[in-house]
Write a protein that binds this DNA or RNA. Sequence first.
DNA 1: AGCGGGATTAGC
DNA 2: CTAATCCCGCTT
Length: 218
Amino acid sequence: MSAASEPLAPLPRAFFLRPTIEVAQDLLGRYLVLARKDEAPRIGRLVETEAYLGETDLASHAARGKTRRNAPMYEEPGHAYVYFVYGMHWCLNIVTEEAGTPCAVLLRAAEPVAGLTQAADGPGKLCRAFGLDGEWNRADLTSGELRTTYGAPVAPDEVLATARVGVAYAGSWAQEPLRFFVASSNCVSRSRTASPSGTLWERPAAGAKRRGRVRACP
DNA sequence: AGCGGGATTAGC
DNA sequence: CTAATCCCGCTT
């Protein structure tokens, strides 16, 4: 969007103050950057995201209203919502739309660009690769050590959509094509439920084995 | 207080 | 297929 075309220029708050689906798609190809003092910057190119669309979205943490856990989703766009799942994994979201509208984009996978020593091909693995935990909850991603930057945005025809992962409990919302990923990337998560259902996806031939990714993430 | 489950991952 | 592992939300 803006005139800022420097790959490492931070995405401004206005970027996140837009419809969540738009933000989720537009984040693909952007860089997630962690630049801390006394440490080489960690940079990943976002290749997989999911949109969560407020209290009516039964797959969203906001589906049952505001709680202490999901409160950041109700706050200012451009901030982090970091939560803990399954007793061992952290997941990073970026809050979107106006304060009071509990929408967010889950960052699910990134390709290594610099400073990463572990794969980031999954939401838990992304946080692990960047060393992110609950301390980053509510962090402002438009300034500070953790940010998203202009990066190298991808063309819309390189983006595929499928149902979101791990939300089978969400009724009809489980089928919505709200997971987006870069078609050509090797670093997309290897989710068990990655069976493509999005309209943009070309279904593999019957019987063809597919476990989410074809080759190993570099 | 206690209980059930989860926007996941790795290993058998 | 399943264990790991714990915070949170909801129920007693």
